[in-house]
């Protein structure tokens, strides 16, 4: 396989000349490979971004929980103190703090505006809990809270974190699926183009056979032509795709998921493998098409 690949790259200039130099199908192959590579860069960026997102949500949300205390104003301070005491004694809890009313007002500001009279509303007191990576025993904590602080309710975010992480995971899967579909579509298009080229060059094949060319020699000339076309087309497509991804807005807190779609760090190296993948797909597809067509051409 390695020998075949190196022979393919080094090539045989004489053999290359056997196939007529211009051909619509060969140009089409380059264009199709370029367009597919362009799309593959986006699918890859989407897949990587959703992977990052799933990890971040899973990590950040998984490490933060909230305890909501609904109690009359005169009992609130005592209940907060009791909750903090329980949390201090709970294994797996790194830190905990009661969220001040001003901070709570800020959290509610986007929904209710800046002039919210919190002191007149029955807004529950919130306690933020940061846990270790290994987490804590949520069920045990709930039991202790219900026994000692009946007005306190633990929300470990599981209810709404799980569907988000699941959605991100599915998006990542769709990204990978898109790359596979793009590769399969590229293979199908190159197969059709190669078959059309071989059929259009039936006379060339007849002449080559007449003078003693083996089918492997004829196939190699076509396979090399299409593989190199796919490689160069995909390289151009990837460069344009990377440029387009680079021009996307940078990741921002306010922008959320959409502004985080770009590539980050060493992930910028990954699209560079797409032309090689495209060339490999073209090599396999054209080899199969050439074998089949040459077998059919008598």
């Amino acid at each position: 396989m390695i020998a075949e690949a190196s022979a393919l790259l080094i090539g045989d200039p004489q053999a290359d000349r056997m196939v007529p130099p211009t051909g619509f199908t060969a140009r089409l192959t380059g264009f199709a490979a370029g367009a597919m590579a362009f799309l593959a860069v986006f699918a890859l960026a989407l897949s990587l971004a959703t992977g990052r997102l799933a990890e971040r949500w899973s990590d950040e949300l998984g490490r933060a929980s909230t305890i909501r205390i609904s109690a009359p104003a005169e009992e609130r301070a005592a209940q907060v103190e009791a909750v903090l005491r329980i949390l201090e004694a709970t294994p797996g809890v790194v830190s905990s703090r009661a969220i001040p009313m001003e901070e709570a007002a800020k959290l509610l500001e986007p929904w209710f505006g800046p002039d919210l009279p919190l002191d007149t509303l029955p807004v529950p007191q919130l306690v933020e809990v940061v846990e270790e990576k290994s987490g804590f025993d949520a069920q045990g904590l709930r039991l202790r809270l219900s026994a000692e602080v009946p007005g306190a309710v633990l929300d470990d975010h599981t209810r709404w974190r799980a569907p988000l992480v699941q959605a991100a995971g599915r998006l990542r899967f769709l990204g990978v699926l898109s790359i596979l579909l793009i590769a399969a579509t590229t293979a199908a298009m190159i197969t059709l183009a190669a078959q059309a080229a071989l059929a259009a060059n039936a006379q060339v094949i007849a002449v080559l056979r007449l003078v003693g060319a083996q089918d492997s020699y004829i196939a190699k000339a076509f396979v090399r032509r299409f593989t190199l076309r796919a490689l160069s087309g995909a390289a151009v497509g990837v460069l344009l795709g990377m440029l387009a991804v680079w021009m996307l807005p940078q990741a921002q807190e306010d922008g959320g998921f959409l502004t985080g779609l770009g590539l980050q760090g060493w992930h910028w190296l990954l699209p560079l493998f797409i032309p090689l993948l495209g060339a490999a797909v073209a090599f396999v597809a054209t080899s199969a098409a050439a074998r089949r067509t040459l077998r059919e051409l008598t």
Partner: peptide, 9 residues
């Protein structure tokens, strides 16, 4: 096929 090709030479 290869055998035929070699004979044709």
């Amino acid at each position: 096929r290869d055998g035929v090709a070699l004979a044709r030479r």
